[in-house]
Structures are given as C-alpha cells and as structure tokens.
C-alpha cells in the first residue's frame, strides 16, 4: 500500500533535527533505517504528518571504545555492528546479535538507534542493553536502559528528543544469544542471552513481555551456586507473556527456560 502523505525534511545536525521535531510536534517521526517505520506506514498503522530524516547527520554512525565502554552511534547499521572489529573485540555478543537481525537487506539499512527508540518487545538489542545496564544517550540526557524500556513501543523520549548513541560496558567473556524462530529472517518467538561479566552472569530475555526482561532470579541462582539446569528453571519466574500467532504464553515460558539453559551451556 502507499503510505499517507507527509512532509519530509532532511536534517544535517542533531540540533536541526530536534528543532524540526519541535516544529511538527507529536505528529512527526524520526526516519533512521526506516525498517520498522516504513512497513508500519505502508500498512497505514502509522500515519505521521512529518518525517525528519536523520540519515545525513555525520558522526552518528561511529562505533568506538572509550575506557571500559563501547559507544555505538544511533546510525550504526546492523551490518556495520556485525562486521565491526571494535564490537567483535569488546562486546562480541552484540556483533553476533546484529548478524541475526532481519536479513542482509534489512541489516544494510536498520540502525541501533532505530531499534532502541522503537522499543519493540521482539527487538534484540534492547535485551542486550537491559541486561548489561547500558545507557541510552540522547541530545538531552543519558537514560539507564532499565528506565528506558517502559512498555510496549513506549520509552521516555520527548517529542524533540533523539537517541544519539547507546553505551554498553565492554564484556568479552563467555556469551551466547539464542534467537528462536521458525524462519531465518523472522523476529524471535523468544530470545535468550547469557553474558559472563565481572565474575557473574547476566541473563536477558526477548519477547516474553511488553519490554525486554532481565532474568534476575536465574542470575541470583547461578550466583548462589545452583546448577545451570536448576537455575534456568527460574527464567520464567514472574513472566506473563501474551500469546501471539507463533506461540502461546505457556510455550513462551517453556522456551524461556529451555533457551536460557542452552544459552548458558553454549556460552563460549
């Protein structure tokens, strides 16, 4: 279908983009990779009055390490995160996750900032950001990941606020992300991530609720010496996933437990 009409403007700086967003107010959307937004517009599930294209803003695609932090610019594409030696050396789980988002064509366009700001429950980066206590940096402030993913497609971003980068801790110990799906290019029916960091485990889950989930009960059980198999049983503690076309709530909880066990066992 053809999207509803909108006004288009192309920003060359974050300040300019923010001013344009101010001008259009609630009815405007930021256009980054566009691979969630444009499909929604084509189905007319989204009908923004204006798009502010930020693809021309220089520097937002940078990926670099500063001290013990990995800074990933909002316009870093999945393909670049997947291929980046900086990411592979400093946070290999993120490079691997980037290679599992969508397909080649999607990875050539889709961005870190877009995925995070869209806050889809089935997004993969939000899980990694949440479980590693990443920070979402905007043109106005720095927001902790745990305060960022508030609800389904809901973040604290103001109308004129733009994600500029996501800052992750460096972690290159054992790790694994398992994205369970029926078709290679598809969303996760459920995803489970395990990362060893500072002597403990961080465990995250994708698509088992309106936001990503950090499986603290599993982390605590592992910390107190529980066997992996026993600890993974706690992955579904407190979960209340909604069913969808692909899986019932019970099946998602089952997958959370099984995939968590596999992710920890296969972490390398």
């Amino acid at each position: 279908m053809i999207p509803a009409a909108f006004e288009y403007s192309h920003a060359t700086s974050v300040e300019e983009a923010s001013k344009l967003l101010d001008k259009y107010g609630e009815d405007a959307k930021v256009l980054a990779g566009g691979h969630s937004l444009i499909p929604l517009m084509r189905l007319r599930l989204a009908q923004p009055k204006a798009l502010v294209d930020i693809n021309g803003i220089k520097g937002l695609e940078n990926i670099e390490v500063k001290g013990s932090k990995l800074h990933v610019g909002a316009l870093a594409r999945h393909v670049d995160i997947n291929n980046s030696h900086v990411v592979k050396d400093n946070l290999p789980i993120l490079a691997e996750v980037a290679g599992e988002v969508g397909d080649n064509q999607v990875r050539n366009m889709g961005t870190m900032g877009g995925v995070v700001a869209h806050a889809d429950a089935a997004g993969d980066y939000p899980t990694i950001a949440l479980m590693l206590d990443a920070e979402v940096v905007t043109n106005k402030r720095t927001i902790q990941a745990k305060d960022f993913f508030k609800d389904l497609f809901t973040t604290p971003l103001a109308v004129n606020e733009i994600v500029t980068e996501v800052v992750f801790p460096v972690a290159n110990g054992p790790h694994k992300y398992i994205k369970f799906r029926r078709r290679l290019f598809d969303w996760a029916i459920v995803g489970a991530a395990a990362q060893k960091m500072n002597g403990g485990w961080r465990i995250g889950l994708t698509n088992v609720g309106p936001t990503p989930v950090r499986a603290k009960a599993v982390e605590d059980a592992l910390h107190s010496g529980a066997k992996v198999e026993e600890a993974a049983q706690h992955a579904s503690d407190g979960l209340d996933p909604s069913g969808d076309l692909r899986a019932s709530p019970e099946y998602k909880k089952h997958l959370a437990r099984v995939l968590t066990r596999r992710a920890i066992e296969q972490a390398g």
Binding site: Y8, H35, I38, P39, V79, Q105, V106, F185
Partner: peptide, 22 residues
C-alpha cells in the same frame, strides 16, 4: 511487508529492499 525481497536493488552497492525506502 518488506519480507519477500522481490524489489531488491543495489543502493551504492548495498542490497536494499526498494519498497522500504522512500
């Protein structure tokens, strides 16, 4: 729905689904 890839072209050498770009 941006899934089938029939519209794939190269944009500056990169494969892109031309239905998912203005």
């Amino acid at each position: 729905t941006s899934q089938c890839g029939a519209c794939t072209i190269l944009v500056d050498g990169k494969a892109v689904k031309s239905c998912t770009m203005f």
